[in-house]
Amino acid sequence: GGAVVEVEGDTLLVATGRRPVVTGLGLEAAGVELEPRSGGIQVDAKLRTTSTGKVPVYAAGDCTGDRQFTHYAGFQGAIAARNALLPLSDPGLLTSVPGCTFTAPEVAKVGLTEAEAKAELGDAKVRVVMTPLSKVDRAIAEGEEEGFIKVVCRESDLKILGATVVAPGAGDIISEFAVAIDRKLKLPQLATIMHVYPAISIAVQQLAAEVYYETLEKSMPLYNVLGKLGL
């Protein structure tokens, strides 16, 4: 029922994804079960498999059927080794993993998309803030104005839930949002962190500053009262 859009190009790339190849490893004999949906090795939050032997078996990376990013596999490999060899344990399955498609411009994402956040929390409890690259000095100077930075927040407190960046160097910029989500930061907090000008990442601070100033305006009645009290 939607509009029909025609797109012309020289080549059509169909990316169907990959499935783990875990046959012939004798996993059944060790009691290691597979995850039905992905076909990967089933692991718990600490990357431990369902092995029934005296020595626990851990799995990490693409063989688990989780998101297939090199950086995520490397992270899981280090965590699996740490959990296997040292006391206590750290989580190896993450809910928020940054990823990037290295096209021109790059497309990077971390956390929830707008649709995912609204499906989980409801439309009224989600706020989306976006700025186009056409407002960023570096992008204008280099003629790279096609793209945007989009941040998904919880409406009540502006906690960052996810972000999408379409821009040159998006794979670098998205890391800031990965840290923000992991540390449960609110979008206005990024306005108080100094960014380098005229890097494209300055757009993150500018976007956050717009929201920060909005919160200040809403608090003006309180500030006026405090001012009259000499505080």
Results as ranks from 00 to 15, higher is better:
Val126Gly: 05
Leu158Thr: 05
Asp62His: 11
Glu145Asn: 08
Leu85Asp: 01
Leu133Pro: 11
Thr95Tyr: 07
Gly169Ala: 05
Ala191Gly: 14
Leu161Gln: 08
Gly122Ile: 13
Gly77His: 04
Gly147Gln: 07
Pro168Thr: 12
Val110His: 08
Ala115Thr: 13
Leu190Ser: 11
Cys100Glu: 07
Gly92Gln: 11
Thr101Pro: 00
Arg67Phe: 08
Ser175Ile: 10
Pro105Tyr: 03
Ala117Met: 08
Phe69Asn: 02
Val196Arg: 10
His71Ala: 09
Leu85Val: 14
Gln76Phe: 03
Asp90His: 10
Phe177Asn: 06
Pro91Leu: 12
Leu121His: 15
Glu106Tyr: 10
Ala108Met: 07
Ile181Val: 14
Leu86Cys: 08
Val152Leu: 06
Glu120Thr: 11
Ala167Thr: 11
Leu133Phe: 13
Pro132Thr: 11
Ala180Leu: 03
Glu114Ile: 00
Ala124Met: 06
Ala119Ile: 01
Lys118Ser: 06
Val179Gln: 03
Glu145Thr: 15
Ala78Cys: 08
Arg67Met: 12
Ile181Phe: 04
Thr103Gly: 07
Asp123Glu: 15
Pro87Thr: 11
Ile140Cys: 02
Leu161Ser: 05
Arg127Cys: 02
Lys135Tyr: 09
Leu190Trp: 09
Ala81Thr: 15
Lys125Gly: 03
Glu114Pro: 00
Pro87Ala: 03
Pro98Asn: 13
Gly143Tyr: 09
Asp182Val: 00
Leu88Val: 13
Ile173Cys: 02
Pro168Glu: 08
Gly77Tyr: 03
Ile193Lys: 07
Val136Phe: 02
Ile202Asp: 14
Leu190Arg: 06
Ala104Ser: 13
Tyr72Phe: 14
Glu144Trp: 02
Leu94Asp: 01
Thr113Ala: 04
Phe148Asn: 01
Ile181Leu: 13
Thr101Tyr: 12
Thr192Gln: 09
Leu187Trp: 03
Ala73Met: 05
Glu116Val: 01
Glu155Gln: 15
Thr164Met: 08
Val166Lys: 10
Gly122His: 13
Ala78Arg: 15
Ile173Leu: 14
Gly99Pro: 01
Ala178Val: 00
Ala167Lys: 08
Ala80Arg: 10
Pro98Val: 06
Gly77Ala: 05
Gly171Phe: 11
Val196His: 09
His71Trp: 12
Ile174Val: 14
Lys186Ser: 12
Tyr197Lys: 03
Ala115Asn: 07
Val110Lys: 09
Ile174Ser: 06
Gly99His: 05
Gly92Thr: 08
Arg127Tyr: 00
Ile79Cys: 11
Lys125Asp: 15
Tyr197Glu: 03
Leu88Phe: 10
Leu112Thr: 05
Asp137Tyr: 07
Lys150Gln: 10
Ala141Thr: 13
Pro198Arg: 01
Ile140Trp: 02
